[in-house]
Design a protein around this nucleic acid. Structure first.
Length: 211
DNA sequence: ACATTAAGTGATT
DNA sequence: AATCACTTAATGT
């Protein structure tokens, strides 16, 4: 745990802070597909991602979903910050492990203390928050301005990038859920992209060619 | 061989 | 771009 922490966070964190994190943080392992938090959950911790990828999505009243962005190693969850500033609040988002992942869960109480006590921590949090905000804006104009075919290609690229693999094991239906559209539409657009030579299609698998 | 699940397609709105 | 209704293909038992 100490090594992993140092790998991704220690460059910026003081020794003393690292020790505190190790002492009080809870190391947790999430298997692929496992939920870290769901819409409506009471959140009383802030996660720091040591290894793996989480998909963050929002849900509407009727169960429709929209994938917003991915969390990678070294990231932390912006939505959890909000919970740390106010009193424990309900989660607006769902976080699912895309691959086997490891996180350190830090209690809100410690999080609060460290914000005051450590400059490095404060900076990390603010920096991380602003990165997340930019991603959010990016997600909004993807939704507002891009057509489905562009959104689909962006989705495939993003995914290939965070998973560091151009071979994506995913079904058309799953993509449809993430983009909040129908499977038929995804199938058709994927076929188009294949004809354009941008991807290669197989059952349960999509290879991204033009990265 | 049969059932199940994933993907492809034409027609309609 | 969504939906329906149907076909075809791949995969599991």
């Amino acid at each position: 745990m100490r090594d992993k922490l140092k790998d991704f966070f220690a460059v910026q964190f003081e020794e003393e802070l690292i020790e505190e994190i190790i002492e009080t943080g809870e190391l947790k392992f999430y298997r692929e597909g496992e939920l870290m938090m769901d819409v409506g959950d009471q959140i009383n911790f802030v996660p720091f991602l040591l290894r793996g990828v989480f998909k963050i999505l929002s849900e509407d009243e009727t169960g429709g979903e929209i994938a917003m962005y991915f969390l990678e190693r070294g990231d932390t969850c912006a939505c959890a910050f909000i919970n740390s500033l106010h009193n424990p609040q309900k989660s607006r988002i769902r976080a699912i492990a895309e691959i086997d992942s490891e996180v350190i869960l830090v209690s809100l109480k410690n999080f609060d203390e460290w914000m005051v006590k450590y400059k490095s921590f404060r900076h990390y949090v603010i920096e991380s928050y602003s990165i997340r905000l930019r991603e959010m804006i990016d997600a909004i104009d993807t939704l507002a301005f891009m057509k489905m075919d562009e959104r689909l290609l962006k989705y495939l690229h993003d995914r290939a990038q965070v998973l560091r693999d151009t071979m994506l094991n995913i079904t058309h239906q799953e993509i449809a859920y993430d983009l909040n559209t129908s499977r038929v539409v995804v199938s058709r657009l994927l076929k188009q992209l294949e004809n354009l030579g941008k991807i290669k299609l197989n059952r349960n698998r999509i290879e991204v060619l033009d990265l």
